[in-house]
């Protein structure tokens, strides 16, 4: 039980923060709850023996992505949405949400939480550290996806600049 305590803490807090993101009325509270979720998911990664990913999660998600969100929320000066009138697609959204939640509940009820999974033996080769292993595999076996990812990032960079600058000087010149 004491070994499972970190899982319950990090997992439970991640779930609570995720629910807070959905339920908060004010966008900036949602963003701060998302920060809590990122941090606790990083804790889960540490339990799962992926310390490198925990670091990446903190740096990229909590450090970069969340700051971007906060910039936009503050730039747009979003006030609390308040209770806007229900739109005509709201009943559909609620019905679909209930279906999704019902499906999840059914699956959780049907799940056997202590299955007899076969234990996978550890590889016998002397293993490197987590970061070294990721580096080795990423730059050999997954070299092509890695290059594609860099192109995706480049396109995102250009696209973000083009999108955010609006009808700038490109048209007038």
């Amino acid at each position: 039980m004491i070994q499972q305590l970190p899982f319950f803490y990090f997992g439970g807090m991640a779930l609570v923060c995720a629910i807070l993101v959905v339920t908060s009325r004010v966008a900036i509270y949602s963003a701060m709850a998302l920060l809590g979720m990122f941090v606790h998911v990083a804790g889960l990664f540490i339990i799962l023996e992926a310390p490198f990913l925990a670091g990446v999660q903190l740096l990229v998600y909590a450090g970069a992505i969340l700051v971007l969100y906060l910039f936009v929320v503050m730039l747009l000066n979003l006030q609390g949405g308040g209770a806007t009138s229900l739109q005509k697609q709201t009943p559909w959204a609620v019905i679909l949400s209930l279906i999704a939640v019902g499906e999840l509940g059914y699956l959780l009820v049907k799940t056997n939480f202590y299955p007899k999974l076969p234990a996978i033996p550890h590889p016998s080769v002397p293993t490197l550290g987590n970061t070294e292993t990721i580096g080795m595999v990423l730059y050999t076996q997954y070299l092509f996806p890695f290059e594609v990812a860099s192109i995706v990032l480049l396109i995102a960079l250009v696209g973000a600049i083009v999108m955010a600058r609006g009808r700038g000087r490109f048209r007038q010149e």
Binding site: V22, S97, A100
Partner: peptide, 30 residues
């Protein structure tokens, strides 16, 4: 040792939370 299925269950619950948020929230940033 935490069973694998608990992680899968947690992941499913978080996924459905996000899905419900996408469906019911109208603020595009959220």
């Amino acid at each position: 040792m935490v069973p694998l299925s608990w992680y899968v269950a947690l992941s499913a619950m978080m996924f459905v939370t996000g899905l419900v948020g996408v469906l019911i929230r109208r603020n595009i940033v959220v």
